[in-house]
Design a protein around this nucleic acid. Structure first.
Lengths: 233, 233
DNA sequence: ATTACTATTTCCCGAGTAA
DNA sequence: TTTACTCGGGAAATAGTAA
């Protein structure tokens, strides 16, 4: 397993036993089999089992001609604590923070955010009717470009594209965020004209007014998301 | 942390970094601080960071006068895999299996299972009207007595007691199970007259008839439950 | 077959210290 | 201050082998 390198040999043995259900039942296990399965010597397997028994992490008993092992409550507690710890890291929302400067775009945002199809989609999926137009933010720091890629992957609210017979209108993906503390939605438009250092934001209100923003002002975007998304692309 | 003993030092460092959010941001970290926090020497901290960098599990960079570290995607994958593995062990339903012999009890079961208050509770909480009477099973193996204790803790369907003014009727705790493949409910009666080697079972049908059971017949009870319950008492 | 002892080797931690 | 080198000692792995 790829995570063997972060475990001690004793840890690998406890996990090996847990995998085989040795917290309810005594399982049959010879030092030779354990050694083979873990890629260590039989001698080490023997020594480690003796040590683990001394540390009250396993119990061993004779089962007729073979020997049985099971985890103790202490060992189970250790594994459960490890589990709880990793859960805490990977299943708790983390916050991603990006910084950029407001700029005036091509003016397309105002057009698209008023197309009835999109308005309906926004209302259904975001819960509000967007103020016409998008606020454009140009990222400053290089690290934030990476974060933008992460966000693009994490944005899981899908706005469907459509066609009116004359032309096709593309889709987009959204994610909720805060901009200087104000609730906003970051929108990643499928076929945007902007480069990868730009983030577009919509909100139910006029952000420029509410936050008194002018071109060149620095703004901070924060997004809460599950750290599982943070695997870099 | 109690789980330090199952981790290698490199594992502890990766977890240390993950705890501090070093999968999104570069964090400031001196070898001295790391050494102090992990209870190892500065020299070891230095060596381990160099090795981890060589293994492409961390990236280091100069931040002006201090040094920054962050986890690589590879390291994140390892931690996530560990997390997924423990999830699989502890959050997947496991099966507990017990064996015993049918015996005829004091006949109280038939009385209690027909009391309107209990019938109503059963129907609401178990989804069926029980066939009058409980099937009594005496456990055979010593290990199964332990499993009975686990089950008693895991039984989380609560049947409330009541009083009719003349006397008090006790409550019980239930858990769904299979008896020789048939859907049943194990019922742990709060103030039972039976000893700890007895399990009582109710079902919507007459189990003795359906499964052609007589006193002394061996039956197998299986219960699916979340392994978190398997922490022995 | 198995387990586990003793002997040997390998590897890793930490002290000393240079840059 | 900091990091990271060399090196000595001890822990931990394997080899050999007895029971």
């Amino acid at each position: 397993m790829s995570f063997d390198k972060i475990l001690s040999l004793k840890g690998r043995i406890l996990l090996y036993l847990a995998d085989r259900g040795a917290f309810t039942d005594v399982i049959e296990l010879s030092t030779i089999k354990l050694a083979r399965d873990l890629g260590i010597s039989q001698q080490s397997a023997s020594r480690l089992l003796i040590e683990l028994e001394g540390e009250k992490l396993i119990e061993r008993r004779d089962l007729g001609r073979t020997r049985g092992v099971r985890l103790t409550e202490d060992a189970l507690k250790i594994l459960l604590e490890m589990h709880a710890h990793l859960k805490n890291i990977f299943e708790k929302p983390a916050e991603l923070s990006l910084e950029g400067r407001v700029f005036t775009g091509f003016g397309e945002g105002a057009y698209y955010t008023q197309i009835p199809h999109y308005v309906k989609e926004f209302e259904e999926k975001l819960g509000f009717k967007p103020y016409p137009g998008t606020l454009n933010i140009r990222l400053i720091r290089h690290d934030d470009l990476l974060k933008r890629m992460i966000l693009e992957r994490a944005a899981d609210i899908v706005i469907e594209g459509f066609s009116d017979g004359r032309r096709a209108y593309g889709g987009a993906r959204c994610i909720f965020a805060k901009l200087n503390g104000e609730d906003v939605v970051i929108i990643f438009i499928d076929r945007t004209h902007y480069s990868k250092d730009v983030i577009e934001v919509i909100a139910p209100i006029c952000l420029r007014e509410k936050l008194k923003l002018s071109d060149g002002d620095r703004v901070r975007l924060t997004v809460k998301l599950n750290p599982t998304y943070l695997i870099r692309c």
